Computed example of a mutant assay.
Amino acid sequence: MAKRKLTQAEMPVADHAFYGLVWAGTVLTERVDRALSKAHDLPVSWFEVMLWLASSPDPVPASVLGNSTMLSRSQVSRVVDALQSRGLATRTPSARDARSVEVSLTPDGHRLFDEADATRRACLAPVFTDLLDQEDLEALSTVWRKLKANKEG
């Protein structure tokens, strides 16, 4: 008997939707990681931390980075160490809490982030943003917000 793939119709919709999220996250993350590493010697984990830092007008408490990214606190700490050693980020004592530090991008960090973000967008365009319309993107954003809001559940 010949082996064949299951069709979407043979899989419960919730299972297919979950598999799709896992597949898309894995494939797109690997694609972005390869592009950023090749063009900028920048792993995607570093880019994620830089994205949060670049999005904030003020220095970000290290604990907030740990809660915002998909990385563990120890991974965030190692990434910030690496960014700092490359002159891309700085740590400063918090003015509000003497026990904590705040992290910000340096001018070189902002410059590299802008270049890397352009690379990320170009890398994703043919396989993501060019394929989806505004309604698709808004639906995905809504799904993401609902899942993230209940992440502790």
Rank of each mutant, 00 (worst) to 15 (best):
D81N: 12
T142N: 10
Q84L: 07
V103W: 03
L42Q: 02
V13T: 13
P43Q: 07
D114S: 07
Q84I: 02
E30L: 09
L147I: 10
P43G: 05
L147R: 12
P126E: 05
V27C: 08
E102P: 08
F113R: 07
K151Q: 04
L105N: 01
R99E: 11
L124T: 08
S72C: 02
T69W: 15
L36C: 05
F47Y: 11
R145L: 00
P57A: 06
L36Q: 01
P43W: 04
A2D: 06
D133W: 12
A149D: 15
D133I: 09
F47R: 02
L137C: 06
G20E: 06
D97W: 12
K146Q: 09
E138A: 11
L65C: 08
L105R: 02
S94K: 01
V103Y: 03
R145F: 00
S55H: 11
P59Y: 12
A149Y: 02
A39C: 03
W144S: 03
K3Y: 02
T119I: 03
A17G: 08
R86S: 03
Q75K: 15
M70N: 05
A98H: 15
K148F: 03
A14I: 14
A2H: 09
A82L: 08
D33C: 01
H16Y: 10
K5R: 14
E48W: 04
L6E: 05
F47L: 13
V44S: 06
E138V: 08
P57H: 07
A39Q: 08
L71F: 04
E48P: 04
L36A: 01
L131Q: 06
R91V: 03
G25F: 07
T7N: 11
S72D: 04
G20V: 03
R73W: 11
G66Y: 10
S74V: 07
L124I: 13
L71V: 01
A2T: 05
W23R: 05
S141K: 10
S45E: 09
V22R: 15
S56C: 14
G109W: 01
K3P: 00
A118Q: 08
L65F: 12
L83R: 00
H110P: 01
R31F: 00
P107Y: 07
R78N: 10
V22Y: 15
R78Q: 15
Y19K: 15
V60A: 04
D130I: 00
T129S: 10
K5D: 10
L51S: 14
A118F: 09
A89V: 06
R121N: 12
R145T: 00
S45H: 08
T129K: 10
R34L: 12
V49L: 09
A9T: 05
M1R: 03
M70K: 04
V49D: 02
L65W: 14
R111L: 11
D15K: 11
V44W: 01
G20A: 14
D114R: 06
R78W: 14
L147P: 12
Q134W: 07
L105Y: 02
F18A: 05
W46N: 02
E30D: 13
S104R: 14
K146V: 09
Y19V: 07
F47D: 02
V27G: 13
E10A: 11
P59Q: 11
A9K: 13
R120C: 10
L124H: 15
L42W: 02
A116Q: 03
T7A: 13
A54D: 13
D108F: 05
E10V: 04
V13G: 09
V76F: 02
L105G: 00
D33L: 00
L112R: 06
